[in-house]
């Protein structure tokens, strides 16, 4: 019974709670802290290390995200149908995944080293940054460890038969926690730290991910705005509505 409760807690309750925090947190942050919504770049302090570390980490993590999309969201049957067999997928995922992991970890290592050793950068680091680094680092470390232990040197673990369907079952609101029970510990830890990272996400600088300026590609170069725009679009706060005549229809209505 206890095992069941923990299974449901870890693989159903926690992911949904994290997802709810993720969504509500972002909405809340966007509504009440737009001013704090920024990359908080430290490039003006130091550029020599950042010039290498930042693009390495960011490009690496983008590849990692793309890989996770293919591995978790897309059912393996679909890939079989277009001729990507289990073998091909395994080799591709392992090789590309390791390349992305090396890029990401090397970049992250440079960035963390920089953050600790460059005085102004370290002073500009908040407690939330440090907490975030722990969870981000742990997620990446467990994920890489799982890949190295099982996919590179081990027998190979077919997560597309367990973790993938489990993830999709959460999306489909028909959770199947039992799929996760027998997953190797490294994979389980990777999923758990990632889940916690998502819960933490809206309260960290990671929000800048959702500001990826895709719109820049499509807008005109010069932006014009009227002095009145900002204020007129905003509804006045409660209690500050401008004076208006009472609505006479209200007198006749019940």
């Amino acid at each position: 019974m206890n095992g069941d409760a923990i299974t449901i807690l870890l693989w159903v309750a926690l992911p949904y709670a994290a997802f709810a925090t993720f969504v509500v947190g972002h909405v809340w942050r966007y509504r009440y802290d737009k001013f704090g919504w920024t990359t908080r770049s430290s490039q003006v302090y130091e550029n020599r290390l950042l010039r290498w570390g930042s693009p390495m980490f960011h490009l690496g993590i983008l590849f990692v995200i793309a890989g996770h999309f293919v591995g978790l969201i897309i059912p393996r049957e679909w890939l079989y149908a277009i001729g990507i067999s289990e073998e091909i997928y395994h080799i591709g995922a392992t090789v590309l995944g390791m390349a992305a992991a090396v890029l990401t970890i090397a970049g992250l290592a440079i960035l963390i080293y920089r953050r600790r050793t460059v005085g102004p950068v370290f002073l500009a680091t908040t407690v939330m940054d440090k907490v975030m680094y722990v969870f981000l680092g742990a997620t990446i470390a467990f994920g890489t460890a799982a890949t190295v232990m099982y996919q590179v040197f081990g027998p190979g673990y077919e997560y597309r038969g367990t973790i993938g369907p489990w993830f999709r079952s959460l999306i489909g609101l028909q959770p199947q926690p039992e799929l996760m029970v027998d997953a190797p510990l490294a994979f389980q830890l990777h999923v758990l730290t990632a889940t916690l990272l998502f819960a933490l996400w809206p309260f960290t600088r990671l929000v800048h991910v959702f500001s990826a300026p895709i719109g820049y590609l499509f807008r005109p170069y010069i932006v014009y705005r009227s002095r009145d725009d900002q204020r007129s679009n905003r509804k006045p706060r409660r209690g500050w509505e401008p004076i208006t005549q009472p609505d006479p229809k209200k007198l006749t209505k019940l």
């Binding site: 737009k34 920024t38 770049s41 800048h208 300026p213 010069i222 014009y224 705005r225 009227s226 002095r227």
Partner: peptide, 21 residues
């Protein structure tokens, strides 16, 4: 960043700036 229509003053919307530099 935008140019004000009325008087052409160039300003930064502090709520929309994401610090891309």
């Amino acid at each position: 960043m935008y140019k004000r229509v009325e008087d052409g003053i160039v300003l930064v919307d502090q709520d929309a700036c994401r610090g891309w530099r």
